[in-house]
């Protein structure tokens, strides 16, 4: 077990969660709870993979994955923003829809080898001892995009005028409306942004981090973990990035635990009986629950909370938020 390798791999897997969670933060900040992340991710993963295969260009694949995720999210937008349907149920149906579409259209993709996102080493930065090899050496490009994207998203949400409009729409849509902010339009837009990022997260899996199409196993619940991460991160992109990387490390660390025959001088039970690995596979999900409990306690202490209008449809001219 090598800490540097764990860190390196954790950053790569964490990038998947980073994109998906920040996408969901955008949607939820606008007041739209979209539980369909898993479905949009899987659909994006399939769309990106098959496009890269067909066009021979991974970047086109990435673009199509984002469009695919975004377009799918518009179904959720239409149903919840205009028809005022329950956002929870609509999000669930989006998961079914995305999963179904991905499985139907992804038939026969298993075992294919499309071009992938290139891996690069950043000159100079990679020479920094310890940090260089883990953070800036031989990562796929999307990992570096993730480094930049999280602070940019945080800056956008907290420091810019459109970011303020975004928060206003999610906290008090009626007030935003009276100020001339287009509540419906912005909600559609950020739902779409969330879908695009979920699609990107999916393509990050199939075109970069763990290339290949393994039908529904491709995402294996990471979309749901991302939704949990949003709450843990208290709707803050930087915390979401931190949480995503943390999850990435833990995932990799858990995998590596099975390797050595002895741990701290004792016989490694995981090495002796590989079936104990099932308990390790539970860990990301157990950790998500623990993170949520921990997150909700700090949230209660600091009185931080979800956007006030999260999950509440806005109907012009009616009393409400």
């Amino acid at each position: 077990m090598n800490f540097e390798i764990i860190l390196h791999a954790g950053l790569a897997t964490g990038t998947i969660l980073l994109f998906a969670a920040i996408g969901e933060i955008f949607a939820e900040r606008a007041g739209v709870l979209n539980l369909g992340v898993e479905g949009m991710m899987l659909f994006g993963a399939m769309a990106g993979f098959s496009t890269s295969l067909a066009t021979g260009n991974a970047w086109v694949g990435l673009l199509v994955a984002m469009i695919a995720g975004g377009v799918l999210s518009l179904a959720h937008g239409l149903v919840t923003i205009h028809f005022q349907a329950d956002q929870v149920v609509s999000g669930l149906s989006l998961t079914f829809l995305g999963t179904g579409l991905a499985l139907v259209l992804g038939e026969g993709l298993t075992g294919q080898n499309p071009p992938l996102i290139p891996f690069v080493t950043i000159p100079l930065l990679s020479d920094i001892p310890f940090i260089g090899p883990a953070f800036f050496t031989d990562h796929n490009v999307l990992v570096y995009v993730g480094y930049l994207f999280a602070p940019m998203a945080a800056y956008y949400i907290y420091k810019t005028r459109p970011g303020m409009h975004l928060r206003a729409v999610g906290e008090k849509p009626s007030a935003a409306d009276t100020l001339g902010i287009n509540v419906y339009g912005l909600r559609y837009f950020y739902t779409f942004v969330g879908g695009m990022l979920a699609g990107l997260a999916g393509a990050t899996i199939t075109l970069a981090v763990s290339p290949g199409w393994y039908s529904s196993q491709t995402t294996s619940g990471q979309g749901w973990i991302a939704v949990g991460l949003v709450i843990f991160a208290q709707w803050n992109p930087l915390q979401a990035a931190f949480g995503g990387y943390l999850f990435g490390f833990l995932r990799r660390f858990i995998l590596d635990l099975q390797g050595p025959a002895t741990l701290l001088g004792f016989a490694n039970p995981l090495y002796v009986n590989s079936n104990y690995g099932f308990f390790l596979q539970m860990m990301p999900f157990v950790l998500t629950i623990i993170a949520l409990v921990w997150g909700s306690r700090t949230a209660m202490r600091k009185r931080l909370g979800a956007p006030a209008a999260l999950g509440v449809p806005y109907i012009r001219g009616e009393r409400g938020l």
Binding site: F83, T99, G100, L103
Partner: peptide, 26 residues
């Protein structure tokens, strides 16, 4: 039925249709 994801897809579409149609009730 092939492809195997079709049943899943159908379920997703049904659920979407159901929640959309609720607008007719309101």
């Amino acid at each position: 039925i092939q492809p195997s994801g079709l049943a899943f897809l159908l379920q997703g579409i049904i659920l979407f249709m159901v929640i959309s149609s609720d607008v007719l009730l309101r």
